[in-house]
Write a protein that binds this DNA or RNA. Structure first.
Lengths: 356, 356
DNA sequence: TTTAGCACTCAGAGGCCGAGAGTGCTAAGG
DNA sequence: CCTTAGCACTCTCGGCCTCTGAGTGCTAAA
């Protein structure tokens, strides 16, 4: 990960680490810049403000802290947060109450879309940030069935069900004309023939089939292949695959009280394509990830923080859950929350997949 | 309409009307309060500022204008805008360029969802406001076909196609277990039996059928009815039915430059349910409608204006297209735009319905 | 009925001041 | 050598004042 390259845990001695930790904690909880005096008064150090100031000055030189202006206290930089997250934070386990809420609500929902939507609402509610849940298409996942429904003479709706229970539908326009009976047959054929393969594999296989001998003579098979290829092409993620919930909660944060950052926030949350990009980039990595705004290439989220994690089964990552909020947020609280929800979601999907 | 009750076109003499018109026009174009001096300099009146001040004072007494403070000019009130819109505005016809853009782009799209999405983008782009397109469920419209697809053992996806080309799908959970073959038969049966009826009518008919003699003996029919009723129940409008496009354009308007109104705007556009309510209330009326924020019951949109119009065929209103922006907007330009787009959309849908 | 003239009001910008918060540095003390 | 008290310095913020420009309302004359 690029952002970690230049940070080493041994760059700071024990005292500096303690000070940095305390500054992050205080700043996160109050929202104000932290002064040497308030640090000293915190009781965690038996040092005078003056001594602490020395440490703080060092931390500033190393790029972990910054000064809004001369007579303000210090505020953590991106780098400061990063160090805190990587080396200083001890994330508590999720409060019992939150766990219960999650388990309870998740167990009452079955439809996968609803579960995802619920997840985003839960994240938002329990974190008081914006909840994000992303469900990419099932291109990389195996399908269970594929059905074709006549919608108009030259339009056919293709309903693809993944082994993970996700349902995608897509309307295919075709020059060929199909009758209902024929579509039923094709549906059955494809579902039997290709169940368990990924869309990608199906596409390759279909293309290979066009050259096989039997396809040359079997008109029905030709038509099946033609339709199948159409259906499998371009199953792209749509806006709808991203659930963004609780935008209002972010508005009340003091960092967004001025018009300018409010506008930026508005735009950032509006541009779902960009958010999808970000989520997709998270999908590449395993486990819990914390993104500090400035580190990422996505300038839209410059002063945001994202805590995200993939969900899905052991070896296939299905999608991403996470929260987005101001950089100043309680990462130690968010981390277990996102983690727990990700696991709950994975479990849920696993169940749904096995049980029916 | 409640808001018109207390406004009569003859309440103002010719001079007052001219002054009110000019004030609205100037205020809309500059965004500033209009002073007697700038009115006089406009050249449209051969009167001194002093005389105009008298007229303005009268207009203020009657509630058409207001004073932000003593030494500001005058600004139209809700009532002022309403009078302007009802009696003073001559809406120009839509510029040729805009018409061409609309015709061009609409003709290149066929899928109904895409057409609607396109429409909202076009509205936003051409108006520089927020474009809204609302497509309620097809509950009140006739269906062309209804197909059932097995998604999991106890889950069936129901794909309903309206005669208007709208496709809705819904997942039905059922205790009964259906095989693919059976579902195919049921699909065929229902589509033939009920084509041309509205969902409402279908529901009523299904319920009546449960008591008919043949249903008592025909197990297959019983199952068909059970499934059908499930499918027809609760086809509710979803968030997705509302396209809101171009939120960013509204952010640059000077009236939303401060944090407070920015936040309100954000929330108003976020709450899609409320927007759907508003759109639905527009659906009740025919022709072009202009809503001035303060008049409506929806306090969220207090200082917004909405220009909207239903689209659809001669006797069935399918949905609503419109724009929403600050109250201060060029209604005379918006009206023909929304109108034209509404007509284009109706035509398009009509075509699609007949042709296939 | 119109208009010139004038007094009056008010918002907004700019400048000034004092209070408060914090820092950096230095020098003395353990 | 580390710690700390002391002090000068810097900067923000809020209050207060003033000045200016814009615009009005009213009155009296044309």
């Amino acid at each position: 990960m690029a952002h970690k390259l230049d940070i080493h845990s041994d760059e700071l001695d024990s005292r500096a680490r303690d000070v940095l930790r305390e500054i992050v904690i205080q700043h996160v909880s109050t929202g104000e810049a932290v002064s040497s005096r308030s640090l000293s008064k915190s009781g965690r150090f038996n040092l005078s403000p003056a001594s602490l100031r020395n440490v703080m000055a060092d931390l500033e030189d190393l790029g972990y802290l910054q000064h809004p202006h001369t007579s303000a206290g210090r505020v953590p930089t991106d780098r400061g947060y990063r160090f805190f997250i990587d080396y200083l934070m001890h994330s508590r386990s999720l409060p019992r109450h939150d766990r219960e809420v999650i388990d309870e609500e998740v167990s009452h929902t079955t439809e996968i879309d609803e579960v995802l939507h619920l997840a985003s609402r839960l994240l938002s509610r329990l974190s008081d940030q914006v909840g994000l849940v992303f469900m990419p298409t099932l291109l990389q996942f195996a399908i269970r069935s594929m059905d074709f429904v006549l919608v108009a003479e030259n339009k056919i709706m293709c309903v693809i069900v993944g082994t993970n229970g996700v349902v995608v539908n897509k309307i295919v326009e075709t020059r060929l004309v199909f009758a209902r009976d024929e579509l039923d047959k094709i549906s059955r054929f494809i579902s039997i023939e290709f169940a368990g393969l990924t869309l990608d594999a199906i596409r390759r296989r279909l293309i290979r089939m066009t050259e096989e001998e039997r396809a040359l003579h079997d008109r029905m098979l030709q038509r099946t292949i033609a339709l199948g290829i159409e259906a499998v092409n371009d199953v792209t993620p749509v806006e709808h695959d991203l659930y963004v919930e609780g935008a209002e909660s972010i508005l009340s944060k003091p960092e967004f009280s001025d018009a300018v950052s409010l506008r930026k926030t508005f735009l950032a949350l509006q541009e779902k394509e960009k958010l999808i990009d970000i989520m997709n980039s998270c999908l590449a990595e395993d486990g819990l990830q914390i993104l500090i705004g400035g580190e990422s290439d996505f300038t839209q989220i410059h002063n945001f923080g994202i805590v995200a994690r993939s969900y899905g089964s052991h070896n296939s990552r299905l999608g991403i859950v996470g929260i987005i909020g101001p950089m100043r947020m309680e990462y130690a609280r968010m981390a277990p929350l996102v983690n727990y929800l990700g696991r709950a979601l994975s479990r849920k999907i696993e169940e749904e997949r096995e049980q029916p």
